[in-house]
Write a protein that binds this DNA or RNA. Structure first.
Lengths: 254, 254
DNA sequence: CGACCGATTGACTATTTTCAAGTGGTGTGG
DNA sequence: CCACACCACTTGAAAATAGTCAATCGGTCG
């Protein structure tokens, strides 16, 4: 069951510097959003934060801890994952037009979420150009990512989609300096492992493929020495090889 | 060649009531945006309004006349159409973060476009809650449509995609009361024809299919009496049949 | 130990693409 | 006015791609 953990305090928020309030200097933070009350909620793995169609959108959320998947589904039950949220992500921004959410948010791992009442955030936005810009920027980034994904799904073949996914995953780890989990002993410092946030079946659901297709190409690339995998972590051994498969630059069969 | 036609006048704009200024009452329109200069530009079929990556975004556009396709492409030349704009649509809103556009806008037919300098629109937005809301609402609608499309491309099979496309096209004609072109003589008043804005190849590019696949299912449905086609116009004879194929409600194999 | 679950693998099938040939309408030039 | 080229679309046959079904592996947990 989702649970209210506490009232949020922006000053001590673990994702303060990734949040939409990151543009505000420490000293004005309190004045600006001092009386702005947010609820920290805790969700367990697989619990739903909000639901496509059925939930009406009265809140906007920021992910503090854990991972969340944003999904849509067809009447017969097929599921498409639209994107995966990492700590700092703003979501549920659909709400600004005050209808139902257009998608479902579901906890991929146990997680912690900061819930912002839509009304108050709107006002905050009106009075703070910084915050307004931050929200808008996220909006646009979100739209761009969704468009990029549309190209992936519409134009690419299975191996291209998969290779692109692995490479982008790795990119995003590098960019955010996220946890690179070394699982112990005999690693050179050039060995960079990334934890795979999604199961095979979820990767399939993200890329419009079946679990078997995902598995086959991964196996293939392991045999070819492109990647290595161990306990939910993945290592890219031959990025150039993957890039050639992925069709992300001119190295693909132009 | 794209050509400057004239300076825009919002009061006499053909899409004034679909535009982001539609919320402003006639009398305040002049005061609010009186000194706000826009350029009306004319593009011929297939000309590019702006280009993915190469063009930096300094303007936002409203389509006044004609149709535009928003596309992205892969390095090897494959093209994905993201959406098709109809008169009144705002586009190029990427620009609010001031980077390159994330996609290419290309004239599907000869068309007329109103170009709004980004700077001025931003200011206008700051000072007019109405306009701000209108822009935000379009943003969200755009994001939702893109997400919906992601589900179409990721989760559906060819016939489902195609049937959905035809049905949605018909819906949007009904919703907007757009031109239903009767091509002449012996039509009962129940015969509603919709002009098909896209060629077979473009439909394929929108749905991630080849031209042949599109053609085959259309032929199939003509034989089955689901649809009829004549000179670029299409008529739905059996919506229920198409819906069953489309997987848009519970009638699909749940 | 045994049950369970995610992942892998193989064999087969279905779907979609590719390649190639043909159709039909439109417009141009002789 | 006809012949011709051109273009979008259609159709068929073969090939590639991805999905389905089923058996199996390997790890984890009670």
């Amino acid at each position: 069951m989702p649970q209210l953990k506490s009232i949020g305090h922006c000053l001590t928020c673990p994702v303060r510097h990734q949040s939409i309030f990151s543009g505000l200097p420490e000293e004005s933070l309190k004045d600006t959003i001092g009386d702005f009350k947010t609820s920290i909620m805790v969700f367990e793995e697989d619990e739903i934060i909000f639901n496509q169609d059925s939930d009406s959108s009265e809140s906007v959320y920021t992910l503090r801890k854990g991972l969340i998947k944003i999904c849509k589904s067809l009447p017969d039950g097929r599921i498409q994952i639209m994107r995966v949220l990492v700590p700092g992500c703003l979501f549920g921004i659909d709400g600004f037009v005050g209808e139902a959410y257009n998608h479902t948010a579901r906890a991929l791992t146990d997680c912690e979420v900061c819930k912002l009442p839509l009304e108050e955030l709107s006002e905050l936005r009106r009075n703070n150009p910084e915050i307004d810009r931050a929200i808008l920027a996220r909006f646009i980034k979100n739209l761009r990512q969704t468009e990029d994904m549309l190209l992936e799904l519409g134009a690419k073949k299975a191996p291209e989609k998969l290779a692109t996914y692995i490479l982008k995953l790795s990119e995003s780890y590098k960019a955010n300096g996220l946890k690179l989990s070394n699982d112990g002993a005999n690693l050179s410092n050039k060995d960079v492992w990334h934890s795979l946030p999604l199961s095979r079946s979820e990767i399939g659901s993200l890329l419009g493929l079946t679990i078997e297709t995902v598995s086959r190409f991964f196996s293939d690339w392991k045999r070819k020495g492109f990647i290595k995998e161990s306990k939910g972590n993945i290592q890219i051994l031959n990025a150039a090889g993957l890039k050639k498969v992925a069709c992300i630059d001119d190295s693909c069969g132009k």
